[in-house]
Design a protein around this nucleic acid. Structure first.
Length: 898
RNA sequence: GCCGGUGUGGCGAAAUGGCAGACGCACAGGACUUAAAAUCCUGGGACCGUAAAAAGUCGUGUCGGUUCGAGUCCGACCACCGGCACCA
């Protein structure tokens, strides 16, 4: 396609200007914004230091700089936020709009292994490439606060926050984290070792020996959130359960607050639902069942089950323990021992994938033991089955086959009794009914509707010490350690006490950053031992203690990067408290936290849950001033390939932004990405569509630039190959642009555009805002005289979308200006939009039949009269009686006839 | 199975309960040109109709409802996309 305008000269020119001028610098309290800077010209014209205007923090999810470079999906969100950042600057806000690199983690390490290079090298190269691509799009990032999670100056503070977690406990009385020093020890702890064990069991960062997800192919353990259908989220490799010593973060302590916090923030309902589902709160009761003729080695004889339906207790006909339940072996009778052992082996062999995929076919064995139902003293058999999960609730259930699908399937398979205790509403089958009904066959709760029955039986159990109301969560504690090289080392050392028992201790803050050892072989080991263990001289300290060799997961660095941006070069704190209060607090404006956060849905339960958790801990410890980090969050929709399929290398439908930029320029690329459709929708790429918006930018260009100088310029460009920006000076503005008073029609066109673009930007409707700009240009291009004042305001509207072109044209219109980035956003004047006459459609029985033109001032009666006279209505009114005439002021007339 | 989202021309889409299809793509016709590209102008949901028009009928996934009036609100269903899924 023929070049529409010299974007190849304009775009680099303005990117250089912005960089030299630091145009998009975000100012912190106390900063000296030098005279001459356009921000200063707008907000501090007198030159005397004055208070900062209100803040606006617009954040992108920072990218993981992969070797493949940017694809067209990345700049979608970045363009949206850039437009809003520029819009907010024009409105007078002090805007924070930063960018950085989430560069630790598995994919970076795997890429390095593939390339045979150290991840430090590959990461640097990838970052450089991403940065080049992002910069070529002309985004208004403040690069002075760029962060890189792998930079020691950054991860020092990631480690510092880990120490905060390590040195805190969750105080249930206050429902918040407190320093570990405030922990009160039970009086029966005899010595320091016992106290230490107690303290270590209460920390927000603690060591656990529980079975974890081990991924052989990746050579590391994974968090629950990273395992999907028994496969690794990344790479789709099989995972197995394996007991290992691992660091955990006590996110479960925050389950309730993470849930409640969702109510106060402006996120999409679907995203909130995803988090709610993941947290998985369910209310119910724990019920204690006595095991008949049995006592455990520590003298207990009861098994506790969790149920959300205590009202169905009378319908419990058997009990099921998970095969991993700690008492299975003890309660099993000699006769059943072989069968139980065999079943446990069989279950252990099954991968978790098999366990879920074969879900429909229930399996299990009888233990030989019986439990006593506390409400009716019935003896019910105790089974073990893998449909009961060890990790949820108490790992044991009471089975009520009549009112639970799974229990019913199991009972039918093993011929266990089914007893109805809930009457379903009329017309529904009661056996297998799991909803709310009315209790039957249930002694003292018979006749009660389900909610009341639940309440009454819970009280009954509670008063007898047989059970209590409980809330359970699906959310598990966060498995926080990885057996990989490319991550933050833990600032932890291991020691031995006088009895030879190992215990851990935190390094002091002064030891940070703790650098990883420089390994040449950083590949994972086959044993599951972390690669850091290879660095013997790093691991073994002179005093005999050893360093922790696990590293932190990829998510660690992204949990708090939005805080570092605020004060990125601070060497004495993760973020200074004054800038933190300004950008994250509710002063001086009302929005606490990041004002707008844009990114993909893929982070709905990982990054967004983890970051909220860390933020709440930091809030509890007084380090940050808002309880939630991200006030408003928007997910951009996926961009599909031209074939309507998800872009992927194997399909060969990946669009490379570099090529688009070379042919059409950054402004056209940005404009197209926003013009495709609503930000949050999934939409297919179409390069023809880029040509469309590119033509629009060409029309804008021709609206301003003199034809003749344009033709000469283009000829020189091709014949002489003059590629430097100086050539632009030969271009002259069109002679039709004059300092004349605009006509009423011209003002109306402009103000309609101002109104539409302003309202659409406030509602994040970029596509319709752009169409409004197109409507203006289609109109303005027909004017014989183009008043300077009108065109200048149009450029202010265009600037957020196509900043390079707008800056270039604005500088022609306004000699002496340095950048239009802080030029005030125009306000529309409603008076200018008022019409003298208006055209109103006239309907008969709701069908359009004619149109009438009436003065805006026409009364209802006048409009009715005019409508009845409308020529084309006659055939539809003949022989009919008029029942009613509806006049919707300024909209339409509808005549109802019979 | 459960939760969330989306269904509108050939395509991307637009429409506070009030003229369905703004804006753009693709397409067709015309102007300019030796010609093409670019640019500019015009057209365009389907059906029926006509020399051409006009008029008319139908039309926003399906079926029903509310309303003077429904793409929009309500009820039932269908399809596609995303998430969760033996969580008691």
């Amino acid at each position: 396609m023929r070049r529409q305008y010299p974007f190849h000269l304009i775009e680099p020119k303005w990117q250089t200007v912005w960089e030299r001028q630091a145009t998009f610098r975000a100012w912190n309290p106390g900063d000296d914004f030098g005279a001459g800077h356009p921000f200063s010209v707008r907000h501090n014209p007198s030159g005397a230091a004055s208070a900062l205007p209100p803040k606006f923090y617009i954040l992108d999810m920072f990218p993981y700089p992969s070797g493949a470079g940017l694809h067209v999906g990345h700049p979608e969100g970045y363009t949206a936020t850039d437009i809003l950042a520029r819009y907010r600057r024009a409105l007078g806000f002090n805007v924070m709009h930063p960018m950085g690199w989430d560069a630790f983690g598995l994919p970076a390490e795997q890429y390095a292994i593939l390339k045979g290079q150290h991840p430090r090298i590959t990461t640097e190269n990838n970052v450089a490439n991403f940065k080049r691509q992002i910069k070529s799009l002309g985004f208004s990032y403040d690069w002075s606060c760029e962060v890189d999670t792998t930079d020691p100056k950054y991860f020092r503070w990631t480690q510092w926050i880990f120490l905060k977690l390590y040195n805190s406990w969750f105080n249930p009385a206050l429902n918040k984290a407190d320093p570990i020093e405030t922990l009160v020890y039970p009086p029966d702890l005899k010595n320091d070792a016992e106290k230490r064990a107690y303290r270590d069991s209460k920390r927000l960062a603690y060591v656990s020996e529980a079975p974890v997800w081990w991924c052989e192919a990746l050579g590391t353990v994974l968090a629950n959130e990273e395992v999907i259908n028994g496969k690794s989220e990344r790479g789709d490799h099989p995972v197995t359960r394996k007991p290992m010593r691992q660091w955990m973060l006590r996110i479960t302590a925050y389950a309730e607050r993470l849930l409640d916090g969702l109510n106060g923030i402006d996120w999409s309902e679907s995203l909130k639902e995803m988090q709610r589902n993941w947290i998985g709160r369910s209310e119910g009761a724990e019920v204690k069942f006595e095991v008949a003729d049995f006592k455990t080695t520590d003298g207990q004889s009861q098994i506790t089950v969790f149920t959300t339906r205590p009202d169905t207790l009378f319908g419990a006909t058997y009990m099921v323990l998970s095969p991993e339940h700690k008492w299975v072996d003890q309660i099993t009778t000699p006769g059943q021992r072989d069968a139980v052992a065999a079943y446990k082996t069989e279950v252990a062999k099954k991968s978790d994938l098999e366990r879920t995929e074969l879900a429909k076919d229930k399996s299990g064995v009888f233990t030989g033991a019986y439990a006593i139902n506390p409400v009716n003293s019935e003896r019910i058999p105790i089974w073990i089955a893998d449909y009961v999960l060890a990790t949820y609730g108490t790992g044991a259930i009471m089975a009520v086959p009549a009112h639970d699908e799974r229990d019913l399937a199991f009972a039918r398979k093993f011929n266990l009794p089914v007893r109805q205790v809930v009457q379903a509403p009329a017309g529904e089958e009661s056996i297998g009914f799991v909803g709310d009904g009315v209790s039957v066959n249930s002694d003292f709760i018979t006749g009660l509707p389900t909610p009341e029955a639940k309440r009454k039986i819970a009280e009954w159990l509670d008063s007898r010490g047989l059970g209590k109301k409980t809330v359970n969560f699906k959310l598990r504690d966060w498995l926080f350690s990885r057996q990989r090289y490319w991550g933050e080392p833990f600032p932890i050392i291991w020691k031995r006490d006088e009895n030879g028992a190992r215990y851990h201790e935190a390094l002091p803050e002064s030891a940070l950053p703790l650098m990883p050892p420089n390994l040449t072989d950083f590949k994972p080991t086959s044993t599951g031992e972390p690669p850091l263990a290879r660095a013997k001289e790093w691991v073994n300290l002179p005093d005999g203690s050893e360093r922790e060799t696990n590293t932190m997961p990829q998510w660690a660095g992204s949990c708090w990067y939005y805080l570092r941006f605020i004060d990125a070069s601070n060497a004495s704190a993760f973020c200074g408290s004054e800038p933190e209060r300004y950008w994250m607090g509710s002063q001086p404006v009302a929005t606490p936290g990041v004002d707008l956060y844009v990114g993909g849905t893929e982070h709905a339960v990982l990054h967004l849950l983890y970051a909220r958790f860390w933020h709440k801990v930091l809030f509890d410890l007084g380090c940050v001033s808002s309880p939630e980090p991200f006030f408003k969050l928007v997910n951009q929709g996926l961009i599909l390939g031209e074939d309507g399929q998800k872009m992927s290398k194997s399909r060969g439908n990946v669009v490379n932004p570099d090529e688009i930029l070379r042919e059409f320029g950054a402004d056209a690329f940005r404009l197209y990405e926003m013009f495709m459709g609503p930000l949050e929708m999934v939409k297919p790429w179409n390069t023809k569509g880029v040509e469309g918006v590119y033509r629009f930018l060409g029309r804008v260009w021709r609206l301003f630039v003199d034809d003749k100088s344009e033709t000469e310029f283009e000829q020189n460009q091709t014949t002489e190959g003059d590629q430097n920006a100086g050539a632009l000076t030969t271009l002259r503005l069109s002679a039709a642009i004059r300092d004349e008073t605009p006509t009423a029609t011209q003002l109306k066109t402009l103000h309609a555009c101002i109104k539409k673009v302003t309202e659409d930007l406030d509602g994040l409707r970029f596509n319709t805002a752009i169409s409004a700009l197109m409507v203006f240009v289609n109109e303005a291009i027909t004017w014989d005289v183009k008043p300077t004042a009108v065109l200048r305001e149009f450029l202010v509207l265009l600037q957020p979308f196509a900043p390079h072109l707008a800056e270039e044209l604005y500088s022609r219109l306004t000699p002496g200006s340095t950048s239009m980035a802080y030029v005030e956003w125009p306000k529309y004047d409603p008076a200018l939009l008022v019409e003298q006459t208006l055209e109103m459609p006239v309907q008969v029985n709701g069908k359009l039949r004619d149109k009438i033109v009436v003065p805006v001032t026409a009364t209802q009666q006048e409009v009715e009269a005019a409508a009845l006279k409308a020529e084309k209505l006659k055939p539809f009114l003949e022989g009919k009686s008029i029942k009613k005439i509806i006049v919707v002021p300024k909209k339409l007339v509808n005549i109802v006839v019979g």
